[in-house]
Design a protein around this nucleic acid. Sequence first.
DNA 1: AATCTTTTGTTACTCGGTTGCATTTTCGGG
DNA 2: CCCGAAAATGCAACCGAGTAACAAAAGATT
Lengths: 212, 212
Amino acid sequence: MSDEPGLRERKKQRTRQALSDTAVELFLKRGFDQVSVADVAAAVEVSKPTLFRYFPAKEDLVLHRIADHQGEAARVVSGRTAGQSPLGALRAHFHERLEAHDPITGLNDNPTVRAFNDMVYTTPSLLARLVRYSGRDEELLAGALVEASGSDALTAGLAAAQIITVHQRLARENWRKLADGRGVGEALPEAHADADRAYDLLGAGLGAEFDR
Amino acid sequence: MSDEPGLRERKKQRTRQALSDTAVELFLKRGFDQVSVADVAAAVEVSKPTLFRYFPAKEDLVLHRIADHQGEAARVVSGRTAGQSPLGALRAHFHERLEAHDPITGLNDNPTVRAFNDMVYTTPSLLARLVRYSGRDEELLAGALVEASGSDALTAGLAAAQIITVHQRLARENWRKLADGRGVGEALPEAHADADRAYDLLGAGLGAEFDR
DNA sequence: AATCTTTTGTTACTCGGTTGCATTTTCGGG
DNA sequence: CCCGAAAATGCAACCGAGTAACAAAAGATT
């Protein structure tokens, strides 16, 4: 039973891709707020309602790529190797993503990726929408943490919130390094150090610094 | 030099107040999304552009009250009594707010306050806007923490992010307790315990639970 | 009272997003 | 191969948030 996608499904995928690609291209060229959804629809030769049947909001034309990463933290925890702690697995994974120059770490100097990150981090409506995605991410991670360590829901929830928050700060920090004109060669070691600092803090708490 | 506000200024304050009050009243009665800004403007007998001269967005008709609390965490740290740690001051302050049934803690069973919180926590656009306010709060707290403990910007930024995040979770948790039908009498002790748990975790880190 | 400045109302517009309905396109079975 | 159901699209009109331009009104100043 080969389940070929079928013509209809293939066309849909192509339209979806065309919409997202064209949109991002236009947004990067002229700015997110300077391009209307009608412009995007016209460029793809599709009607406005059709565009919204594919993407529920203008922001999603940009963010669905990031949204695809959803649940990554939870998966890392669930899929960690035996004997590894949840926090250890997350730390290791973050270093890996950094080393791979994964765009979501903010550390990638491909011009297009950089422009993309600039756009996301400087456009309020995109940032706002991004937060909603993180909310889901947080829930999933909380679930994985309960599973992994048997802690109560509140503790796991608090931990998940802190971890996701820290990831966001780190990514933003990395983006800022590049935005300030530093090169990846210079920024990467700093980013690793920052990540270690952040995870040390997560693990050992704020007490040593802020409770004496 | 008595600097009386002057008629103009007084009128402006009154209009602003009327807009906010009327808006909240209508929103609570019929739902945030079921009331248009035109409705609010009409009810106050003011034109739509005038409304937007007072509040930059519909959401701010609701949130400006919360926004007025902005920088509270930073102030608590800056204004802590001698010999008190930043974290200790914040913890104590949170318990105080809880005891005072401050609406921002989520724990208040006045029907209007409850309806207000229900609205804020269940309306995505309000939630999104709230996040932006917290962002500012976070920056301010980070600044205060640098001042207070001489830590570097990254550490202070991470700490501030974690603290603000935890406050949000606690408030949301408290709101949920009430939303689930529990009374304040029952929920308050739990809320204190939750807060202690959260601050213990903040101080001592996630290591003990998630790094073994 | 005359004037200057700030605030307001009116009208009209842009843009994101939705709705209803007719039309086209794909799929599936005979 | 054809025909009908189901899905996807287009069209046109609409709603609500927010803004721009400009004229009218009201408070402040001398």
